[in-house]
């Protein structure tokens, strides 16, 4: 089946690609988009920063991925990107837990019933999910702080929760405003692939 396409130009229209080619290209696009998100994490361009905080690109990616997928797929994406974020900042406590929760919840949302698929609703989902992820993070810090009480490696509970309040709003606002930049191209791409497979 693939043999017929092997000698033709790679710049063929999408619908004429074989199933195998399109699958490989899809993996490529997906991995490249995650890599771009990783590179965007340490960058602070004007308009991308509020109180020293930038958008949480990996969370936006997990939401975009999970919107039309199963909870299990959402969880796996959350785990992988969470581990990546651990590598980019600091592995204790892990980011994976928060992103797994985000992936599963996003996949479980009954979008066709309550939310339409537009600019506003994607931004809303990202806003809510950022708040949830930040809370999971704060809970993990609290646990670590309680467990190692007094040894001074982790800040106090009162500090953690005031900090949580301070950053959650800024981070949620920024991430939801920047969400469409990542969501629309990715969603377009996956949508094209889906219609092609049918």
């Amino acid at each position: 089946m693939t043999r017929g396409y092997r000698n033709t130009s790679p710049f063929l229209p999408l619908w004429r690609w074989s199933a195998k080619t399109s699958r490989i290209v899809n993996w490529g696009v997906t991995i490249a988009s995650v890599f771009l998100c990783l590179l965007a994490l340490p960058v602070r361009l004007p308009g991308m920063e509020l109180l020293g905080i930038g958008p949480n690109w990996l969370l936006i990616w997990v939401v975009a991925w999970s919107v039309k997928r199963s909870p299990l797929q959402g969880a796996i994406a959350g785990l992988v990107l969470g581990l990546l974020q651990d590598g980019m900042s600091s592995p204790h406590p892990t980011h994976a837990l928060g992103l797994i929760v985000v992936g599963v919840l996003t996949a479980l949302l009954q979008k066709q019933r309550y939310i339409q698929e537009d600019f506003i609703s994607v931004a809303l989902i990202v806003f809510g999910m950022t708040a949830i992820a930040e809370t999971v993070m704060a809970l993990q810090f609290s646990l670590a702080s309680l467990r190692g009480a007094g040894d001074g490696t982790f800040p106090s509970l009162s500090y953690i929760w005031t900090y949580h309040q301070r950053i959650t709003l800024a981070s949620a606002l920024l991430s939801s405003l920047w969400a469409p930049v990542l969501y629309f191209p990715l969603e377009r791409w996956w949508e094209t692939l889906r219609s092609m497979e049918e």
Binding site: L38, I76, L83, M88
Partner: peptide, 23 residues
């Protein structure tokens, strides 16, 4: 999935060294 997970673990273990070098 296995490949993605092991890659992610590698990045975590090396503290993102390769990503930051490219960055």
């Amino acid at each position: 999935v296995g490949l993605a997970l092991s890659l992610a673990l590698l990045v975590r273990q090396t503290q993102g060294g390769l990503v930051f070098d490219i960055y």
